[in-house]
Simulated scan of single mutants.
Amino acid sequence: MSPISAASRVLMVLAMAMAQTCSVAAAEDERARLLARGEEALSASRINDAWLAFERASNMKHAVDAETAIVRTYMQAGQYRRAISFAAHTSGVHAGDPAGVGLYGWLLHLGGQRAAAERLLSEASIRLPGQRFLGEVRAAIRENAAFPEQDPPAAAVRLYPYAESNAGARKSVVAGTAVLIDQGRHAIVPTATLGGARTVWLRNGMGQTRKASVKTRIKSKGLTLLSLHAPLPLPQELQIAASDPFPGSVGYVAEYAANTRPTPAWPVLHVGFLGLPLENSADRALGVDVPRGPRGGALFDSTGRLAGIAVKGNDGSDQAVLINDLRKHLTKWLPAAHSPLETSKPSADLVYETALQTTLQVLRE
């Protein structure tokens, strides 16, 4: 058999290179299709379909776009602890990409770890100078603002959930925050938040949206009980406090950042120490340092149980209507707790995961 000529060997090498190039191009096309399919499924709240598509894309190539998509899928499913764990991995492995770092910093901020978020983003801004996305994330955290709604690729990665499609809600503005109770059938909101709204929509941190109407008002507390036209899911982990928390004990308040647009968002958790009782009142000074806003956020005690609602006092100060007082006015919807007193301290991550479903955006037309 005659030896292969030099020219033939060159042709063979070129053919193999072309085949490999075509194979790589085909793989990239397939990966792009998987990412697009996953994004479409996520926008339609088909969580499992989205996760499968993004996971397949991630297995094809270890890249930040697929990994941040998986993080957002966990958030859309209400699984904050899995989301922030995977975001930490993504940020570390892809330290040179602003998308992974920015997403991780945003999730740290949401979960009450603002100092850690600012430190991470400050170091990243030095390492990655001139990255507009990192600057936008830092500015939103500094101002306690909702991340501005943008269409990719304007933003490196989406920092808010998809909302259920609803024409009425899209015409509304975010007026404040409410607390979901009674197996997801009712919600408590400061009356002032509602204003003279003709229609009210409530939306949780997973984008699930329901229309609501006024059930009853508690004039002495400035609160309104809203009835949802269809229930929203409540987390299995949610427990109602058996009694009011002690002044000075650890407390968590979850609220949505102010926003004049109907943009969906994830709530922000604030951690602090509960304030003292107010003179001649069953209410308390809130104590937890929460940025300016209309209030209405869920108050959780040191054991992670729902213990009240944050409100604005007549003097404009931040106060809390606690669980005993709420029960007195809303006995039918907040029955007495019969579970044993829990003394273990949950992680802030677990409290935030509960808040994703318990804390609602109030949208009004």
Rank of each mutant, 00 (worst) to 15 (best):
A36L: 10
V101A: 02
A298R: 12
L274R: 08
I218Y: 10
S317T: 15
K345N: 10
G112N: 07
A258G: 12
A6R: 06
S125L: 04
A44E: 06
E237N: 12
E353P: 05
W266E: 02
G96N: 12
S220E: 15
Y160L: 04
V200R: 03
L232R: 04
G313R: 04
V311P: 09
A41E: 13
S220C: 04
P267A: 13
E136N: 01
E342V: 14
R210V: 04
A99L: 08
R158D: 00
D182K: 10
M18L: 10
L34H: 03
G275M: 04
G308A: 07
R198C: 05
D301K: 13
A44F: 10
A95S: 15
L341D: 09
V271G: 07
P291W: 11
A163E: 09
A285Q: 15
Q183M: 12
E164M: 14
S125T: 07
A140N: 00
T191G: 06
T331C: 03
D151P: 12
V351P: 03
L274F: 13
T177H: 11
T354D: 05
K332T: 15
V10N: 03
E255K: 10
T209H: 08
K215P: 03
A230M: 02
A115G: 02
G96C: 12
Y256T: 01
R170W: 02
L326W: 02
V13I: 09
A197I: 02
F300S: 15
T199E: 13
A88N: 03
A310D: 14
R364S: 12
D97F: 06
Q357S: 11
A265G: 08
S45I: 01
M206W: 02
E40Q: 12
E279T: 12
A99G: 04
Q76D: 06
K61W: 06
K61T: 14
L14C: 05
E30Q: 14
Q150V: 00
T209W: 03
L128F: 04
A41T: 03
L356T: 02
D289N: 14
E28N: 12
G272D: 10
A63K: 11
P190M: 01
A307E: 01
A95C: 10
